[in-house]
Amino acid sequence: MEESNQIEEILGRFHPERENLLPVLQEIQEKVGYLSREVMESVAHFFHLPPSEVFSIVTFYNQFRRKPPGRHPVHVCLGTACYLLGGSLILDAFSRELQIKKGDTTEDGNFGLESTACFGCCNVAPVVKINSQIYPKMTPGTVEEVLINLRDKDKKG
């Protein structure tokens, strides 16, 4: 499989010392998109660490995801300006509409949900970024609208 070759190639470039654990996890996520159960197990094996410890570290950091990112990764900004203007309500609304928690991907693999800190367009806060497009001045009400439009586009395209 191509994916396991990629992982082997990455592991091959590192010594199995603890300080290399985070760089390895970061690089695998960058190449593969996420850290699956199997990946966490092979990383644990490589570093001679208990799998429970690798799982502990992967779940501790927000930057790691354990599921594929989804065709439309939804990034809700929780930077200071967006947060003050209700960014967390927008995140809640997406979570409710998509029925997934932050860091998860919908069953059909269409949507992923993440929070990030600042895209640099605080003047139109609160903002959401989906497929490199910025959605300005979001409200919980426009969340549904955004999702309907994306789903429609998918049907047509």
Partner: peptide
């Protein structure tokens, strides 16, 4: 080991 962090932290297995 523990998983997640802050209030969400739980003791769990791999």
């Amino acid at each position: 080991d523990f998983a997640y962090r802050g209030f969400e932290m739980v003791l769990t297995t791999f």
